[in-house]
Design a protein around this nucleic acid. Sequence first.
DNA 1: TATTGTTATACTCTATAACTATA
DNA 2: TATAGTTATAGAGTATAACAATA
Lengths: 148, 148
Amino acid sequence: MVKERFLPVLRELARCYQAFELHSGRHIRSLGLTSAQFDIIATLGNTPGMCCGELGEKTLITKGTLTGVIDRLESKALVERETALHDRRSVFVKLTPAGEQLFEQVFPAHLAFIRQGFASFTDDELSAIQNMLIRLREAFIQEEKDPS
Amino acid sequence: MVKERFLPVLRELARCYQAFELHSGRHIRSLGLTSAQFDIIATLGNTPGMCCGELGEKTLITKGTLTGVIDRLESKALVERETALHDRRSVFVKLTPAGEQLFEQVFPAHLAFIRQGFASFTDDELSAIQNMLIRLREAFIQEEKDPS
DNA sequence: TATTGTTATACTCTATAACTATA
DNA sequence: TATAGTTATAGAGTATAACAATA
């Protein structure tokens, strides 16, 4: 029978993230978007745009998938593609005015939801939890690179 | 421009969870399973089995999807279905011997990976992070029920 | 030759709703 | 009537690999 001191923490990590995802997923779907699509919108928000490679890195969506996701956002007229000037292999993706409007309408609602969730935390507590999450993530990544 | 004290924490929560998912996802796929399928295996491990309703609750997989996931696991001979005795509408799902063997082979490897990630944390730190994650999740759920 | 993004394939998950059989 | 699962449908993400255009 398994009994490890860290399992409760891992379970809480998953449950906490999933609780957040559950809410935000509903909100996103009510806008007619999927998580992947919203990820793109949120990543492009408040930026001048970026090329597919950069978008893929930030959203963890692989390039083959990314093409389809951007296709669907483009057909909704929320993003647009331009050929990059400096490298004609690259495609520059950015929000359309409608996309920016959606971003600006949706993001504050997200923030309000999240803000309330964090309302009872002091700044010190926030720092503490953030630092531990960073440490934990780095430990996971470390092993990824160096599977000793 | 958005500037909230809790956004860095939320981002770390997501990145930390995703870092874990990235690794475990690779491991799972190398076994020829999907995340949903592994979720079922892990949930059934060390239990006598359970009916679809309970499985769905624990894994957050909706019943329509669950049928398909279990179908695929059954075709791999990792789980089996039995009609429940007490209620013939219910279906009892449990690991086959092969499923148990997979569970017992895979789970320790997962644990070893996770254990290393947590290696540098003291017990006090683990308690602290766990408590904060619980608080945070409950705050999210609270809003879900009571959107004030 | 290497890189950027697209296309193609095959599979799986997702939400939703109608349906069957029990209760 | 209500519940437990199944079936059906349509859409979307996933991994993977081959491909075109450009560097």
